[in-house]
Design a protein around this nucleic acid. Sequence first.
DNA 1: CTGTTAGCGCGTTCAT
DNA 2: ATGAACGCGCTAACAG
Lengths: 376, 376
Amino acid sequence: MSYVDIIEIGSGCCYGFDVLDHTQTVRIDARATSPIVATPRAGLPPQRATLADVARLAGVSAKTVSRVMSDDAKVSAQTRERVLLSAKRLRFRPNQLARGLRRGGVSNTVAFVIGDLHNPFYMSTAAGVERELAERGLTMILATTDDSPGSEAVVVDALLAQRVRALLIVPIAEDQSYLEGERQLGTAVVSVDRPANNLVSDSVVLQNREGTAAAVKSLLAIGHRRIGFVCSPRQLYTHQERLLGYRHALLEAGITDSVRWERLEEIDGPSTEESIRDLLAMDEPPTAIITGNNRASAGAVRELLTRRRDIAFIGFDDFELADALGISVIAYDAMELGRQAARLALARLDDPTGPPRAISIPTWLVPRGSGEIPPS
Amino acid sequence: MSYVDIIEIGSGCCYGFDVLDHTQTVRIDARATSPIVATPRAGLPPQRATLADVARLAGVSAKTVSRVMSDDAKVSAQTRERVLLSAKRLRFRPNQLARGLRRGGVSNTVAFVIGDLHNPFYMSTAAGVERELAERGLTMILATTDDSPGSEAVVVDALLAQRVRALLIVPIAEDQSYLEGERQLGTAVVSVDRPANNLVSDSVVLQNREGTAAAVKSLLAIGHRRIGFVCSPRQLYTHQERLLGYRHALLEAGITDSVRWERLEEIDGPSTEESIRDLLAMDEPPTAIITGNNRASAGAVRELLTRRRDIAFIGFDDFELADALGISVIAYDAMELGRQAARLALARLDDPTGPPRAISIPTWLVPRGSGEIPPS
DNA sequence: CTGTTAGCGCGTTCAT
DNA sequence: ATGAACGCGCTAACAG
């Protein structure tokens, strides 16, 4: 048996209405001197209506139809009505490809390039992007690099060939200078979540340092002195910022040997669970642990929730069920990240020469219990 | 202070090159009668290079360049080299819009219309769609209806105006007959997760009944007789199928009054938590509960995990942390759902007149503990 | 193997 | 207020 069940419904002739009927239909087309049969090959669908088709039916010129479709004011209400009626009859739909081509060769799509579709954080961001774009009649294309630095340029290349108006990108490759040319050609480029490398561009990032610093301070306030930091492999920038916030807050409190409790995982290195076990097996184990991203938080939940409920725990990135499980987190508005990114792109399209702007999105601590456990 | 921090980096003149320069530069273009001047910076033209530009630089005709770019075999290795070199120099990128327009007025994008970007289930499906499309050089456009039946037609309309090659849609409106015309015009339509209403189309759905039936049977096998079913509002079809599987399995075991333990939530009705409390407050409360989707599962986790660990619980849809929390679920390969949907669309493009196909994706029970709790 | 001509569907320019 | 001609960038259909 095959992996999936496939069922054919009915026979060919039952699919939709009989296509043979169609071949008898006549396309409204002045270019034809005699009534033409819709398709030479049986089974091919009829053609889409064009501006010219609508114009003919309405008895006006193509340009007039164009004006009506573009909401150009200079059309009499009477002809406008006639045109709209004809358009509706023919199920006319302006071809955005042709429109874009004529208007400078660009589409009305914006690309958002992320590393991984499964990360809920990116999804909320994408939702924000989409909503913001929709208000301007733009469509979002979501593309992924599969978190592989090598595929970034390939993916971006395909998108640029589509003539996306703007490129919102979570940089993954080590160098984005290849986008400089595109930027000059009028494509708005916005780096999201991390700044681009070797490329001056608008950007939106989180207040990462502030987030971990707030978590550390909160833990210090209830008496913790040995605080661990565990982070799954993600990207240098986010890692480092969050680490810096952690270190800085500890230094401010006079704790200078925090490096002992730092566990920054490499790809293919030990898992979060292993890192945490490692930390807790130390001579002077931490009494509290901060995780640097949602993946590490999942690992921490697995390791701590069931066995060590005496260890305080705060995770970066909010997640579903965190409230149900009583996990304190450093949260932020991921959707706002997307909205702001889209807004930067739109502003850039309106003003290609203005100075680049960097927006940072606030982060805050959400106490839910796990972060309020005192040192034992 | 505003909600976000905005920082302007540097002054205007530092952002890329000065646009005033631009107006002085002359585009590399034979149509220009005056001597051709390259751009002041790096020799890059401010305009995008076109086929004609490349052709001129390579000393061939536009068509030859076209052939090279389309990997048309009938070009000598020598001219091919020259063309490729010129293309690289000018950073030429074929305009997919123009290409699509010429080749029948369609783009090379495929739309996937879902209800909600936040649902991880759809995200995995989208990942499957994207991967499958990428192999054919197609791009995915992800659009959302915000789970609002009214916006479906609006969203779809915008996508059709983009001339997407195919439309993969999770139907939300009560009627998809408006797509019949588009199908006939050659747009492949595939309904995902639910069959379309009043429209004959290819479709991919889950084996919903089999999933709940398996869960019920597993619970019956360890002695449960009173089994509850709770489902958050989603869509009639999925609801009903899962409910039918549940009822059928109970009937087979001779349990005919299961309707007492069914809680099918309406929008704005009681929450899952309330439904569960309601069930457990009955005279003869269920000893096991099945949730019909991931949202209901989240509610059940909130309600059961902390207080009532004596109640067996199986959720439909797998979710992150389900393993860490020991939650038994009815799982399936969400990505495969997307892959199959994309494959159906591609097959439909190749053969517009074949019979419609319906694919169903297997579901299976993943025992992790919560579903193996015996009746108390 | 390569070039020429024409036109995809639409919007711009200029005319009326 | 409306229309005719032209061209956006590219490729199909024919040349040669």
